[in-house]
Nucleic acid binder design. Structure first.
Lengths: 238, 238
DNA sequence: TCAAAAGTGTTCGGATTACACCCATGC
DNA sequence: GCATGGGTGTAATCCGAACACTTTTGA
């Protein structure tokens, strides 16, 4: 029997959020880490690290996520285990997760970093349509994560993972439109999400322009996505 | 930085087929291997083995599949990477695949084994509703594989992976019914699969009882399931 | 001729789509 | 007032479920 002690296990995470651009659009964005060592020194790569003996993969993903962004994800799910022989000069199996962050968490954290002056030097956020060249097979991995997100948004409510605790239907619709890359009918969108029962109306309104829009919050009785028998146990650390 | 040389990587596969029972029903069945060593000696477990340094995970899955059953799968896809710290006495990350076998391949192979007398002694097929106690977390893994199959059968044509090259619509419908555990309207089922364009009618018929049924074969221009950017490259070895 | 499965036609109701229209606010 | 987005109404259409009905074989 062949042991596999010469194979190392890494955990990486595709961390996604919705960024508000200067001209007001919402675009998907993710943080990358500038590598300081070979292989692929000075290239950008997904946040991650080696799996330690005392840590489960999902815990490792949550930990590197926190180390990179200082934040806890609103959604975290395993994406795929990549293990092709030639994907790295040494033999590495990468268990890759994908995570969603609320956009208000991200902007608050970035402001805090700027204010305190000790923002992580080698971490940078990139818009999804302006990614640099990526180390290893990480470009393919990001592409696959986006494909999963776009699929999943059609049959679950993961899009709410991008939004703050309270949001208007227009904001939720904008999230869907950014993810799917197409515009949706406001009237029909409203009816669909209302009848789905995933939203709870509040008695508060977003004011500031034109007619005030009602704020909704998500019904936390329902998971963001059905994970089947794996359930929430495999999802996060608690 | 912590290396992870003390973590070993295994590959296991949930191999599924549709078995014809003595009383004519079709039930899902899978092969299990009787363990000869600790841990979990003398218990049944999923087929698998250690990932070797020169082999990709999907190749390892295909290899152990061939070693266990002597067959090539009609469908093979990664299921999940299981890596909880306490899932084995030693630290093992298992990359688990799930595979479909054509029922005619399986029955032919089993007959050949019986005839030649050297059937693998420690491999046995179990009906899905009569599984023994399983080693490790393999019971949970099987449960998750079945969940994936039942989901996937709704939006892809993986069910055809159970059937021979040519089959009647009743046989295809029976496969769906066995997987989903409910009966389907023959008339509506016919229209749905016909309009989906995944089937090509042949000019041959299955005779023997009542009115002959037209034989169909699957349209190999279309993949059994959309795998997204991973595509068929990550699916099998060629 | 009859039972049973193959295959066709039709209806119904719910969901999706497109789009007209009213409402409430800032300017 | 009026422009603008919030929110409602409604007709057209598509799609799946239910089920009656015809066709073709073996016995």
């Amino acid at each position: 029997m062949t042991r596999s002690g010469d194979i190392r296990v890494a955990v990486s995470t595709v961390i996604l959020t919705l960024r508000r651009t200067d001209d007001g659009r919402a675009v998907l964005a993710l943080p990358l880490v500038l590598r300081t060592r070979e292989p692929f020194a000075d290239q950008w790569a997904l946040p991650g690290g080696w799996l330690t003996a005392t840590e489960s993969p999902v815990d490792a993903a949550a930990r590197t996520l926190a180390e990179t962004t200082g934040l806890a994800p609103s959604y975290l799910e395993q994406l795929y285990a990549f293990g092709a022989v030639d994907r790295s000069p040494t033999r590495v199996v990468s268990i890759v997760y994908w995570a969603l962050l609320r956009q208000d968490d991200v902007t608050a954290q970035i402001s805090a970093h700027r204010a305190s002056g000790h923002a992580p030097e080698n971490v940078r956020w990139f818009d999804i349509d302006q990614l640099p060249q990526l180390a290893f097979d990480h470009a393919k991995i990001v592409e696959y994560a986006l494909w999963r997100l776009r699929n999943k948004v059609g049959y679950s409510r993961v899009a709410q993972g991008f939004l703050p605790a309270e949001f208007t239907l227009a904001e939720l619709r904008e999230a869907y439109e950014s993810i799917l890359g197409k515009s949706l009918d406001p009237a029909n969108f409203r009816r669909q999400v209302e009848s789905a029962g995933n939203l709870l109306p509040t008695d508060r309104f977003r004011t500031g322009s034109h007619r005030p829009a009602r704020l909704y919050r998500d019904n936390t009785d329902v998971e963001l996505a059905d994970r089947g028998p794996l359930g929430p146990e495999e999802t996060s650390t608690r």
